[in-house]
Simulated assay, not measured.
Amino acid sequence: MQKSLTNSKQHLIIFTRYPEPGTTKTRLTPALGDVGAANLQKQMTEHTILQVKELQTISAITVEVRFAGGNWELMQNWLGLGFVYQTQGEGDLGQRMMRSLADALGSHAERVIIIGTDCPGINCHILTSAFEKLQLCDLVLGPALDGGYYLIGLRRVIPELFSQIPWGTAQVFPKTVEIAQQLNLSSIYLPTLADVDRPEDLPVWQHIFVGDNNSNKF
């Protein structure tokens, strides 16, 4: 049975995709092949889940996985029964994120953070810091080296932050900051991290798991 959101004040949403070969991490297919790219997606999502589970041991949060591809049963069999699962639904990334944010805030959450699974540098410490900082400001952003962001945290729905954004480009973070400034939002920025989207990014993943006999194999 699908779990429901609780009355936790802090809510974390993880955006990911079911790791089916040929439909995920396609920009890495030239380097890894369809199966290798899907395996990397699987490994990176599981890494993120481990950080989130660590966070759950020290902080009262609810966790929701918004997924594309697959279905509820496949996702639960893969990542376990300890999370809320919802499909991302239709629309561009901004529309999907705004929908998930509105749903969480409408279910009594007061501070909502959205993350992806492309940034292996995300850890429990960063997530803890993000929730703490969100008590003090309107917007928390985690910038990525490629010009996007790996984390966004809000206490209310601000549609302007999710519209007219050139998703998938190096302008995502600066454009979001520009809009936040125009709206006079108080903002706090987290450390800049590298994500893994293209073949040249693969050393980021391999560096973090150097010495591991299994995790960095595709």
Rank of each mutant, 00 (worst) to 15 (best):
A37R: 00
A37L: 08
A37K: 02
A38T: 00
L40I: 06
L40N: 02
Q41T: 13
K42F: 14
M44A: 07
M44H: 06
T45M: 09
T45V: 12
E46V: 11
E46I: 12
H47G: 08
T48A: 12
T48D: 03
I49K: 00
L50C: 10
L50H: 04
Q51R: 09
Q51Y: 03
V52L: 05
K53L: 14
K53W: 05
E54P: 02
E54V: 10
L55K: 06
Q56D: 10
T57R: 15
I58N: 15
S59V: 13
A60P: 01
A60D: 15
I61A: 08
I61V: 15
I61Y: 10
T62I: 05
T62R: 04
T62E: 14
V63W: 08
V63D: 11
V63N: 08
A68D: 10
N71S: 13
E73M: 06
E73V: 09
L74I: 03
M75V: 01
Q76A: 10
N77K: 06
N77R: 03
N77T: 00
W78F: 13
L79Q: 01
G80K: 07
L81D: 12
L81C: 06
G82W: 01
G82C: 04
G82P: 01
F83A: 01
V84R: 09
Y85K: 09
Y85P: 08
Q86F: 04
Q86C: 05
T87N: 10
T87S: 13
Q88K: 11
G89N: 03
E90A: 12
E90F: 04
D92G: 11
L93V: 11
L93S: 12
L93Y: 07
L93C: 07
G94K: 13
G94F: 12
G94T: 08
G94R: 10
Q95E: 14
Q95F: 06
R96T: 13
M97R: 13
M97F: 12
M98E: 15
M98N: 15
A102E: 15
A102G: 07
